[in-house]
């Protein structure tokens, strides 16, 4: 999985490309922790190029959400693809990890 980030006006966008599974989940946790530690606690994880996520990947997103909230911010997800959407719905985590069509919309009304 390739991870990159860009600080925008009101949030930091993290792009995650590849499979979010037990191999990449620890990398995502570490990456988000570093972004939060650098002062950005409003995070959008752009999942446009994440074609697959398993329960390890979902666990990492939940951990990252907690880290962002503990720092006074929030974590939202954008551009969710069909397999990721399926996993979120089957685990009912779509109610916790709010999904937006684009990264720009995620904090658009805040």
């Amino acid at each position: 999985m390739d991870l990159s980030y860009e600080v925008k006006d009101s949030y930091a966008e993290i792009k995650a490309a590849g499979r979010l599974n037990m191999v990449s989940a620890p990398k995502l946790r570490e990456f988000v922790a570093d972004v939060v530690a650098s002062g950005s606690s409003r995070i959008v994880v752009n999942l446009e190029d994440t074609a697959f996520m398993d329960s390890s990947g979902l666990g990492a997103l939940i951990g990252c959400l907690k880290a962002a909230r503990q720092a006074g911010g929030d974590l939202r997800i954008a551009a969710v693809q069909p397999q990721v959407k399926m996993v979120l719905e089957l685990t009912s985590m779509d109610r916790v990890l709010t999904s937006y069509a684009t990264a720009d919309e995620a904090f658009g009304n805040d």
């Binding site: 398993d54 329960s55 390890s56 979902l58 666990g59 990492a60 939940i62 951990g63 907690k66 996993v87 089957l90 685990t91 009912s92 985590m93 109610r95 916790v96």
Partner: peptide, 15 residues
């Protein structure tokens, strides 16, 4: 069963 919303593991078998 699925664990609570803030659990970071334990969903694999239910999934």
């Amino acid at each position: 069963a699925m664990p609570g919303e803030d659990a970071e593991s334990g969903r694999g078998l239910a999934l």
